[in-house]
């Protein structure tokens, strides 16, 4: 498996972004339907069934794959809706379904085996050989998106212990909590990634100006405050500033994003099959720019390029906004 070229998997929140990502050099794009069957269920985002079919045609025409995320947990009594989403993805010609719920995995394994690959979503939080082996044996899962809590060394050890492909997040938003195991959003807002496909949903967000500047609130809870003119952020719960133990701090995580560009060669050596860029909610201009840069960096790594060259290719991606290599470096913990 190792000599294989690493695959670059890129986000597509809309058809326009899908086209932009494919044209910028994505090996595969991932997207979801315009409902709560996918974990980026934001207003105005995602695909209708005809749009997905058209997107698949476009991507396949340029040699790129389309992975469809059906990565929320089916609601009691509504499992059929998630099954139908999987059926629709297969009908559209999707190359893989990214799922986490046993109900979806089981349905695809039983009915579409051979027509579509199954990838285990990061929402399933499978990070041990035992868990991954279980999903592989039971449902024929071919690839696991690894939870963002493992270091590169641990990923290497994991790859030696499993016989399915791994996909690692390399750039974009960063969940600090183990994904699929976090209910912070529903605690504050009533809506969560697992159930509704949203975290810190926009309808619960308010930006309130007062004498001290601006407060970003979620369902009335102050997530951060900004002085007049200070760059603001979206009030994502785990990136907020809170008071604990007598001091105010970004207790869980600073408002940073993930950039593991400098670790691409490390991922390659660790046996990672695919590198994933996060950001289905991001605009096409942004996605195209990031994909282009990572395309050239991955190609350079594959061609044996050195670290200086990789850094140069990704330089523009590390400007503006604070970044971290997250759990890939052990000191993050």
């Amino acid at each position: 498996m190792w000599p294989q070229r690493m695959e670059l998997v890129c986000p597509a929140g809309t058809p326009a972004t899908l086209r932009a990502a494919v044209q910028a050099g994505a090996d595969a794009v991932y997207c979801g339907f315009r409902d709560d069957t996918n974990a980026r269920n934001f207003p105005g985002l995602n695909f209708s069934v005809p749009e997905l079919a058209e997107g698949v045609r476009f991507a396949h025409g340029l040699g790129a794959k389309v992975l469809v995320a059906i990565n929320t947990f089916a609601r009691v009594g509504e499992v059929d809706r998630w099954r139908r989403a999987a059926d629709a993805a297969v009908e559209c010609g999707a190359d893989a379904i990214i799922a986490c719920d046993v109900a979806v995995l089981d349905h695809v394994a039983r009915n579409h085996s051979g027509r579509v690959r199954l990838h285990l979503s990061v929402q399933a939080a499978a990070g041990t050989p035992e868990a991954i082996g279980f999903y592989a044996r039971t449902f024929g899962v071919r690839r696991v998106v690894i939870p963002r809590v493992l270091s590169v060394q641990e990923i290497a050890a994991l790859n030696r212990a499993i016989d399915v492909e791994t996909e690692a997040f390399v750039f974009g938003g960063l969940c600090v909590m183990i994904e699929g195991r976090c209910y912070l959003s529903s605690y504050a807002t009533g809506r969560s990634p697992n159930l509704n496909g949203v975290c810190s949903p926009p309808e619960e967000v308010s930006y309130d100006e007062d004498a001290d500047g601006m407060a970003a609130r979620l369902s009335g809870f102050t997530i951060d405050r900004y002085r007049p003119g200070e760059p603001a952020g979206y009030p994502t719960l785990c990136k907020g500033r809170f008071a604990a133990g007598g001091k105010a701090s970004y207790l869980f995580e600073e408002p940073v994003s993930l950039n593991a560009g400098s670790l691409i060669a490390g991922f390659k050596a660790a046996g990672v099959t695919a590198l994933k860029i996060e950001g289905r909610q991001r605009g096409k201009g942004y996605v195209a720019e990031v994909v282009r840069a990572f395309r050239s960096a991955v190609d350079a790594v594959e061609a044996g390029g050195d670290a200086v060259e990789i850094d140069r290719l990704l330089a523009a991606q590390s400007e503006g906004g604070r970044q971290t290599a997250g759990a890939y470096r052990k000191t993050w913990r």
């Binding site: 600090v176 209910y183 993050w332």
Partner: peptide, 21 residues
Amino acid sequence: RLPLAISGRCYHARLHGLHKD
């Protein structure tokens, strides 16, 4: 108290300027 999330990162350690390890 509701168990709401679990992380690879230790927040007690982080609050005290330490690492999980």
